[in-house]
Each structure stands twice: as C-alpha cells, then as structure tokens.
Design a protein around this nucleic acid. Structure first.
Length: 813
RNA sequence: GCGGAUGUGGUGAAAUUGGUAUACACGCCAGACUUAGGAUCUGGUGCUUUACGGCGUGGAGGUUCGAGUCCUCUCAUCCGCACCA
C-alpha cells in the first residue's frame, strides 16, 4: 500500500476528535506545561504564517504530552477589530456574521492540520461572555483609579476613524492602514500603565535568556526610564504681568542637573499652556503667532524633518541658582508629551540646544571641562558652577539634586517615554466601554450585574462616524447611580485589551466560564505560559500590554502571577522570493492547496525543516517535494519491521553498517530532548532522523530496522503526527508513542577509532586505533604515519585529544 | 544617532560550544530503469591545480598545538527606536 496522506490524516483527525485526545486533565496534580501559539484574527483564510506558528506550538504540546506532563494547548479567536467593519462597509455584511463565519471556515482549515488543541476551551473574544468579564475588569480598574477619562491630544487615523495608542503609531503612520496619523484633541479613556512602568522594566530581568534579547531591549527602550531633576522656573515680574497674573512659574525636567549653571535660555513646546495663553490673548506678533500655530499642526515627525525652529516669546524666567534673567523661547523640538513640555537649555553641553542657540545667536556658556569643541557631552569637571566648580560632573548630578531638595527648589524624579495606554476606539466592532454619562453624577461605571453591555445588532455601518454614536436608541439609558436619563459611552475598547488576558481565560475551566472571568486556582496552576510562540511584530504592543494586564489583574486579586509568558519564541516571517507573503504582492502559498496535494504532515515537516523557527522561512516548492519524499520513504519502510516490540539486539553480531545505523538512531534520540527543551532547532532533529533513515537503508538487519522505526516514529510524532501514528498503530499498536527510551551507551562503543593526524597545525593523514590504545601508542602510530611530514623537523609539542585527533607541533630542526 | 541581530557552497542551512568546516535537504551533473520523464533508484558535486598540493566560514589583525567558534578593529545587510531634554 502506498502512502495516502489524505486518507490517513482524515482518519486520525476524526479519531482524535472522537477520543477527545487533547483535553487537559482537570485534576491539577501533575506537573503542567502550558503551550500557547498567539491566537489568530479571523481574517477569513489561513496563511502560511499561521501554519508555521501552529506547527511549532503543536510540536511542543505533543512532545510534553508524551513526557507525561498535563498539557494545556488551547486556541481561540482574536475576533474584534476594524477588518470586520471594513467588510461590512465593502460587502454589506454584518461584522458579527462576517466574523463568526470566518471562524467557522478557519476552524475547519486548522482542523486539517491535525493540531492537538483543546477544543472545549475555544472562544472568540467577541463572545458576549468574554466581553462581560472584560467589562468587569475595566470597572474594577476604574474603581482603583487605574483607568481614567481625560481630554488630550491624541493620535487620530482618519482612515480608520479612530484614535490610536502610541504603540500603534509606526513612523507617524497607522499600524493597520499605514495612513498618516493626525493630532486631535479629544476625550478618551486611559489605563495608567506608567504606574507599572518600574515593575514592567524591572521584571524584564526575569525574562532574560527566556525571551529573545531583542524583545527585552525593545520593551526596555520603549519604557524609556530616565532619572533627573525636576524644578520650577519662576517667571520675572514683567513676564508675570504680561501673562496677566495667570502664571507664576512652570516646571522643567532635566537628566543633566550637572549642567544647570550653563543654562542660557529655556524653551517651551508649542502646546505649552503659556504658549497657548500668549496665542489666545494675541500677545505675540501676528506673523510669529501664525508660525507657532503652524508648528502645532505638524506631527512630531514633520517637526523633526523641519529642523530646529523657534521664536522668542518675549518672556524671561529667573535662574533658580544664579538668579539671572533667562529668555524664554518656544521651540519645535520640545515635545509637549514629555517632561511637562518645557526644558532648560544648555547649548554648551547638548547638541539640540547648541544647534538652536547657534541658529538664533543665543549665548553659550561652558560649565564642563574637556575637549575643545562645543557642544561637549562627555564627562569632565565642572567650571563656572559656583561651589560645585571642580566637582566631577557625574558626582555633581546627585549633589545638585540634593541641593535643590534641601532648598526646596526642586526634586529628583523619574520620567518615562512610555505614555498611558489610550484604550478608547470610536468604532462599532469592539467591546463597549461600560460607562455612562449622567448630567448630575458625571462619569459613572455600569453596575456589574448589568454586564455584559452588549453591542446592538441593528446598526448601519457606513464608514462615516461612530456607528454606536449614530444608533438611534442604544446609547439612551438610565444612570446606574441616580436613575435619571443618561447617555451610554459609545467608544469601544482597543482590541489589544482582549488579547491582554486571553491566556487567563483559557486556563479557566469552561464549566466555570459563566460564573467567573478568571479562576484563581487554575490560573495559578497553569500560568505562566511555559512556551509562547508568535510573531516579532508583537514585541511591544501585545506583549507589553499583556504583561501590564497580568500585573493589574494580579493586584486586583484575580491570580498571583507576575509574568504571563515564561518563555517566548518569536518565529520568523514566511517569505517567497525574498518578500513577505501577501495577497497584494501575489506571492502567497495557499495552505489548503498544499495540504490537499501533499497532506498536513508534509506542510508541517517542511515548515519545521526549512529553517530554525526564529529565522525567516523562504518558501521553496521543490524542498516541499523533498519533505514529501522523506515521509513517503518512511512510510514505505514499514515492511522492514519484523516485531511488534522493541527488540533486544546483540551488538556483537552486527555488521558495520547496522552498527552505524544504530548510532544514527540513538544520536537522533539524544538530540530530541535538547531540541524541544533548549535549542528549538527542529530542523536539526529532522535532519538527524533523515540521517538515521538513510543509515538504516544501507543495512538489512530486521531487528535494527525494528528498533530504528520504533524509536524514530516516537521522535517524529510531534512533527508529523498522522503518518507516525498510522505506522505506529500498524506496526507497534501505538505502544512506542508513549514509550520512554534510554540511550544505550553500548551502541556508541566503536571497534576502532579514527584519529586525524595534524602536523604543524595542518591535517595530514589519519590513523585507525584500538579504543584501548594508550596515549603513547597513539603518538607512536601518528609519528609513523606522518613520517613524511616530520622529516627535517623537531617536534616541540604533542597533543592527543581522546577519540579525535593527534596534533604534533613542529619547527625546522 | 542609539539599541538589537545577522554575515558559512549555486540555494535553505549544520557544526557535540576551541578539535577532520559545509551534516541534512534543495538544485545541478552523470548513470540505471523507461515509449517518455518534470516519476523512481544509484553515484558525484566548496574553489583551485595535470598532479603533489594550495586556498577556503564578510574583511584585517591577534590569542592558541589547533579558531566558523575567543579577543581587537573594520565592512555590509536586516530589524526596532528615534529631537525623550
């Protein structure tokens, strides 16, 4: 019978379903492994990236199941989001209908891959039951003041008609549609992620060595912690008067308090309240005012491209130490969103300040010695700095902060680049934010017993405005506090909120899903995820938010876990002709067609064999053929097996070829645990199995064949489960799949050992030695064999590396 | 600019962590079987040289009996952040 993947695969997929073979054990007693591939967005069809992601995850899950771990390997659907609404706009389909029918279709596709998912724990994040618990968390966060509403300048994508979080802006463009992001002032809901910045940063240490370095550093840079001094500049009397007595002072932040005596001007952001006041009250020349307004209309990227630009505001402040009067400018390089939107400028020791001062002929005052050229930004002793003169600048930082604190002029403080997470989206297809606006009570959280606040089904989605806002009745409600007529919040939650806690939802037994969002005991048992697998594109967004949510939910008492994902494997992209597969480029491979032609096992084998998982995977049709050939060959060799159990082999009776075959089989066995637990180099494990099969093929001992197949089918089962299970059932009644193997050392004992002979560091010849030969005997043989190259030479050093080589260092006699 | 990675045959990639570089696979070449082969099987395949040999892991040095692996410098490519005071 020849290999027929479609038949075999359908058979085992059905059997696994019928046997409910992959459900975790409800008794939380055994040691566990939680294996999770990032859940998919139900876009409509599976792509090769999914295949790779789930093939890797499945290999881990099946491996650990075989090692007797209690394995949780779930799947679900990240189901809210813009594409559902875009489909509605384009094809007139309801987002809910579009989403759930996509899920149905993709579920079938996933099923043909033979993945060992728990099927009872599957859910979609748009299920109302999921929304219900998410809304509960949101309300709790509001009660704990981790969630607040404020009106501020936000990133707005006109294409998506919604606000974006900072993390969702890539080079000034929307992460989803690549449209240029605009700035807009509007109210929204924020989660206080900055409150957790220190823990998020510090706990990265726990992930070192378990997460890719790159991801750890990216998160650390994104949080962007810096320490320094915060102090106030007091405005001069004349300036106070000019500002109508509305301002006395403003705060600045610096990481370089050591340069405080070098301050020659101060600069405010165009959005700073003082700048705004001057504009609104027409206290500036009209052409300057006009130019400042132009700056406020530009994004940060545009401002950066523009070069340094600024205007004298005609104000002065008092230097806190020298009491000198210092001019105040507005400058386009001062960011409104960081450090209070105002800076002290030290042109002598800061490149930006220097550039600006040079352009506008502002004074430059040197306060650190070292180098000839300005700006000087390296270390050195202070000068022109009153009592601090002569102190090393690194030391002076702390001393000056202390001085400010002692004299109540300012304080040491920490700043982060991280901004609070804006979670409102002005879209329909998301989880409604469970709040109500009441004329008398203000912002009120919905009562928990009223959850979920579900989406109305009868909406018109046109792409114009917020569909919930436009709905005639949905937003009308009673205030949960006073009962008066009130208006429901029409913003929905960012979809990243859903993916921030799904790992806990899976861990909760579905029979409790009605009663609780997260079961504490089960969460504590299953989490953290022992192996998380997904794309590097989530290095900041999802992975940072999920870490944050984990800590918040811990502090709200839902569980005791600090980090959600213990080990992270970021898989590389699937490429074709050197470019990422995409519909628009037309360089895609359809997984369905591939499975139809070769079967799921070939698809899985190829994706794991062609490259190590973290690397990019270049698609190659003929290499897919190669993977198929290997499976076919493996299948054909079932006729070589002559027993149903693992034979006891007398090593001494074997031919050289049979001995080598056993070596290869046991080498593959040795490799296996290393690959699953340390290196993740599935490609090398597969190569080792190919070598073993090639070596078996070069000999004809039926017992060696039986042993080889018995072991190899076990090793390959996590990678190509259908064909291995089929063969295993046929040959060994599946007993080898659960078997544990000892590496038999006698297999590696050789009759003779080949030593390489190096003379003068160059490989010259080889000698064959008895394994029991002494060092002296080996050297003697080596010298005999290498006599030709030793002529006229004196040996200065003799090195024997056991079982490997002899190296004779020589020099001319 | 800052940070993180990566550079090995025609291609995807290995190398027990300092010990015979190129395992495994694709491709290519030759042969067998075939009406045919884009099926299957067998053998070969780093470069160079008639040969002995020489040279080869981006480049240049260094450490070592011995370096793809360690050190110094350098080049190239990819990714992330980017006026964060």
């Amino acid at each position: 019978m020849s290999y027929n993947p479609n038949e075999i695969e359908a058979k085992w997929q059905k059997k696994w379903d019928d046997e409910k073979a992959f459900e975790p054990d409800d008794a939380l007693t055994r040691e566990k492994k939680y294996i999770l591939s990032m859940f998919p967005f139900p876009s409509g069809r599976l792509h090769m990236g999914h295949v790779r992601n789930y093939a890797i995850g499945d290999a881990f899950a099946r491996y650990y199941r075989k090692q007797d771990f209690n394995v949780l390997h779930p799947i679900g659907w990240d189901a809210f989001g813009m594409p559902a609404e875009n489909a509605a706009i384009k094809h007139g389909r309801h987002p809910k209908d579009w989403t759930y029918s996509n899920i149905d279709y993709m579920k079938k596709e996933l099923n043909t891959l033979g993945l060992s998912f728990s099927k009872t724990r599957e859910f979609a994040t748009c299920d109302e039951l999921y929304t219900k618990w998410e809304q509960e968390f949101i309300i709790k966060m509001f009660e704990e003041k981790l969630l607040y509403r404020e009106s501020t300048t936000v990133n707005w994508c006109e294409d998506c008609h919604t606000v974006l979080a900072n993390e969702q802006v890539e080079e000034g463009c929307c992460w989803r549609c690549d449209n240029e992001v605009e700035l807009k002032e509007m109210p929204g809901y924020y989660l206080d992620i900055i409150k957790y910045a220190d823990e998020l940063l510090d706990d990265l240490k726990l992930l070192e060595g378990k997460w890719p370095n790159q991801v750890v550093t990216m998160q650390s840079n994104w949080i962007g912690k810096s320490q320094g001094l915060e102090f106030d500049f007091e405005l001069s009397e004349a300036s106070k008067a000019k500002l109508g007595g509305n301002f006395d002072r403003y705060t600045v932040f610096t990481t370089r308090p050591d340069t405080i005596y070098g301050v020659t001007y101060s600069a405010l952001a165009a959005e700073h309240p003082i700048t705004k006041y001057l504009l609104e009250n027409e206290l500036l020349d009209s052409d300057i005012a006009q130019k400042i307004v132009t700056i406020t209309n530009m994004t940060e990227i545009e401002r950066a491209k523009e070069g340094k630009e600024g205007y004298d505001l005609g104000l002065t402040v008092i230097h806190p130490l020298t009491k000198e009067e210092i001019p105040v400018w507005t400058a386009n390089f001062v960011l409104a969103s960081y450090g209070g939107g105002a800076v002290m400028a030290v042109p002598a020791h800061d490149e930006r300040d220097f550039e600006f001062a040079t352009k506008y002929s502002l004074p430059i005052k040197r306060v650190i010695l070292g180098g000839d050229e300005l700006p000087y930004t390296l270390e050195g002793n202070l000068e022109n700095s009153d009592t601090f003169t002569g102190t090393k600048n690194t030391k002076a930082k702390a001393e000056i902060i202390s001085y400010f604190e002692e004299h109540a002029l300012g304080k040491g403080t920490t700043n982060y680049k991280l901004r609070n997470w804006g979670i409102s989206r002005q879209r329909y297809w998301g989880a409604p934010i469970p709040f109500v606006h009441c004329d008398s009570c203000g912002l009120v959280a919905e009562k928990v017993e009223n959850l979920p606040i579900a989406l109305p089904e009868d909406v018109e989605i046109t792409g114009e405005g917020n569909p919930l806002e436009n709905h005639p009745t949905w937003k009308n409600c009673a205030c949960p506090k006073c009962g008066a007529d009130a208006i429901r919040e029409t913003d929905t939650l960012d979809t990243f909120v859903q993916s921030s806690w799904y790992q806990f939802r899976y861990a909760t037994n579905p029979n409790k899903w009605n009663e609780t969002g997260i079961d504490k005991e089960e969460a504590n048992y299953w989490l953290g995820v022992d192996q998380y697998i997904g794309g590097i594109e989530h290095a900041i967004l999802h992975l940072l938010y999920a870490r944050f949510f984990t800590k918040v939910l811990r502090d709200l008492g839902y569980h005791d876990i600090d980090e959600p994902f213990e080990n992270l494997l970021t898989q590389g992209m699937v490429l074709m002709d050197g470019a990422k597969m995409s519909k628009s480029k037309g360089n895609t491979v359809d997984p369905d067609a591939l499975i139809e032609k070769y079967g799921a096992d070939t698809a899985r084998l190829f994706t794991l064999f062609a490259a190590p998982p973290a690397k990019e995977l270049e698609w190659n049709d003929s290499a897919v053929e190669g993977a198929f050939r290997f499976i076919k060959k493996l299948y054909d060799r079932n006729s070589k097996v002559n027993a149903k159990t693992l034979p006891n082999i007398d090593q001494s009776t074997l031919s050289k070829e049979s001995k080598l075959a056993r070596v290869k089989v046991y080498e593959a066995l040795q490799k296996s645990s290393d690959v699953y637990e340390k290196t993740f180099a599935f490609n090398t494990l597969i190569a080792a199995c190919m070598e073993a099969l090639n070596a078996l093929d070069k000999q004809d001992n039926a017992e060696v064949w039986t042993e080889g197949m018995y072991i190899m089918l076990n090793l390959l089962e996590p990678i190509i489960p259908h064909v291995t299970t089929e063969l295993s059932e046929m040959l060994f009644s599946r007993e080898n799949l659960g078997a544990k193997f000892e590496v038999k050392e006698e297999v590696f004992v050789q009759d003779s050992i080949l030593y390489m002979v190096m003379i003068g560091g160059k490989k010259r010849t080889e000698i064959e030695m008895n394994p029991a030969a002494s060092k002296e005997e080996i050297l003697l043989s080596a010298k005999e064999a290498g006599a030709k190259w030793l002529e006229g030479m004196t040996i200065v050093k003799e090195i024997v590396v056991p079982n490997k080589l002899v190296n004779l260092a020589v020099k001319p006699a």
